[in-house]
């Protein structure tokens, strides 16, 4: 897929992606804020879960996506895969950050502390740092191609490492806090809460896809501008 056609294709698909994102987001907010009951135990603060959990899912999904794109780029040398990975990574980091912030806002009413070293929050914090390292590495070289490939290798290693991080943080949590404190998100999610959760998850995915499309198109167009400028300069 050579760049010019890809940029044009993005232009055509974008309006639909934006429309879908807005619609899903509206439905998600409507259900999570208005059309769902408060939790008998947590009260209204359960609504924070509808932001917190989908953000966690997105942070993990985007990290896996970036690793796969990096792998494809390394294996087949498609510049498009690298552009797409570079476009997606900051979005994933933003979702991880949103997850941490909403987790802290949810922890304060529940446990009275802005930050609790809960197993899942700690794993998300480490994932956020993995994102920072990957994005920093991607931009640390004069030649963007070098940065893309190095970041792809780091993403693959990070992906292999994620389950190990999860496992060791869980072990660490039980080591230092044997009595299991209030389980995050309750024993099982009540069906009336499942709908807003899934809607918000879908909304986040739609928003991500639209933004990812814009950023990938920007990256591809930017490389075309650079090439044109180089070619133009030489003439």
């Amino acid at each position: 897929m050579e760049p010019a056609r890809f940029v044009a294709l993005c232009g055509r698909v974008l309006p639909f992606a934006v429309a879908l994102a807005v619609a899903m987001l509206a439905a998600g907010l409507l259900f999570s804020l208005a059309l769902s009951p408060a939790d008998y135990q947590q009260g209204e603060s359960v609504r924070i879960m509808y932001v917190h959990v989908p953000a966690a899912w997105m942070a993990l999904f985007v990290y896996a996506l970036v690793a796969v794109l990096g792998g494809v780029g390394l294996a087949f040398g498609h510049a498009l895969a690298f552009h797409a990975a570079r476009a997606a990574a900051p979005l994933g980091a933003a979702f991880a950050l949103l997850c941490l912030v909403s987790g802290s806002l949810w922890g304060k009413p529940m446990w009275g502390a802005w930050w609790v070293w809960d197993a899942r929050l700690t794993s998300m914090l480490l994932l956020f740092f993995l994102y920072l390292g990957q994005i920093a590495l991607s931009g640390a070289f004069d030649r963007q191609a070098r940065g893309d490939r190095a970041a792809a290798v780091l993403a693959l290693v990070g992906c292999v490492n994620l389950p190990v991080v999860k496992f060791s943080v869980d072990w660490w949590h039980t080591l230092h806090q044997p009595a299991s404190v209030f389980k995050f998100g309750g024993p099982s999610i009540d069906p009336s809460m499942l709908l807003p959760l899934l809607l918000m998850a879908g909304a986040f995915k739609a928003v991500f896809f639209a933004l990812w499309l814009i950023r990938t198109r920007t990256a591809v167009a930017a490389s075309r501008v650079a090439a044109a400028r180089l070619a133009g300069g030489a003439r």
């Binding site: 009260g43 209204e44 932001v51 304060k108």
Partner: peptide, 14 residues
């Protein structure tokens, strides 16, 4: 609800 400010802050952050 006493938690209203937290919910508002969470959606604000979002």
């Amino acid at each position: 609800s006493p938690y209203l400010s937290y919910v508002a802050a969470a959606y604000g952050a979002c």
